[in-house]
Design a binder for these strands. Sequence first.
DNA 1: GGGATCGTCAACCAAATGGTTGAATGTCTA
DNA 2: TAGACATTCAACCATTTGGTTGACGATCCC
Lengths: 110, 110
Amino acid sequence: MANSLDTIFAALADPTRRAILSMLLEDDMAVTDVAEPFEMSLAAISKHLMILTRAGLIAQEKRGRVKWCKLEPDAMKGASVWMQGFGQFEPVNLDAFERFLETELDSAPE
Amino acid sequence: MANSLDTIFAALADPTRRAILSMLLEDDMAVTDVAEPFEMSLAAISKHLMILTRAGLIAQEKRGRVKWCKLEPDAMKGASVWMQGFGQFEPVNLDAFERFLETELDSAPE
DNA sequence: GGGATCGTCAACCAAATGGTTGAATGTCTA
DNA sequence: TAGACATTCAACCATTTGGTTGACGATCCC
């Protein structure tokens, strides 16, 4: 549905949320740990995680008092397919990806 | 630069703008012709085209009093590479793309 | 020159977005 | 049971976004 492209692209448009996704690429994380490197309130991060969840880009599972966040990479597939229709992008270039990932991480606070 | 991912994803988050990009996939178009199928003012479409231009997704060239819009598919490449890092998406599936394109066009007015 | 056409600008508006703080809820642990 | 911890909720705020309208500057053509 077109609506999912709306929510997915909107979710990806924010650098904080992209940084969170990059962090979750490493491993699943608790909400508090996700928030730790950012200079904003836990409530703000909680909202970002809600947006990512509604977009289907992550899933959150509560175990005890800790809510774990994990990447749901399949959600990006539809958007990726949509974009690829606009050009014959060369097959996945991992070097280029590493570079983009680095600039993304650079934009997140230490 | 991370900023371009911001502007590209934000530009793609709006269904009107995605519909415009799909239209330009067919052929270059004048601003007035881009606006024709939409139920909103020319000024609104002009703003959408500005956003797409600033994101680098289209280019506009004025010839006489007509301003032509053409797709700049390369701009999506960085974003596409970024996204592909999150999963091993199968190589471009044109059938799937056609389906997504159709749902996109369905969401645009006739 | 004068009128039609193409497109943008400027001012305005309502709604959405991204953030804050403080209180509230639920869960673990001593 | 009491307190500490993990997370969200609710109210609020400033800024951005997506739209409108009307006036304006170019350009084409008779």
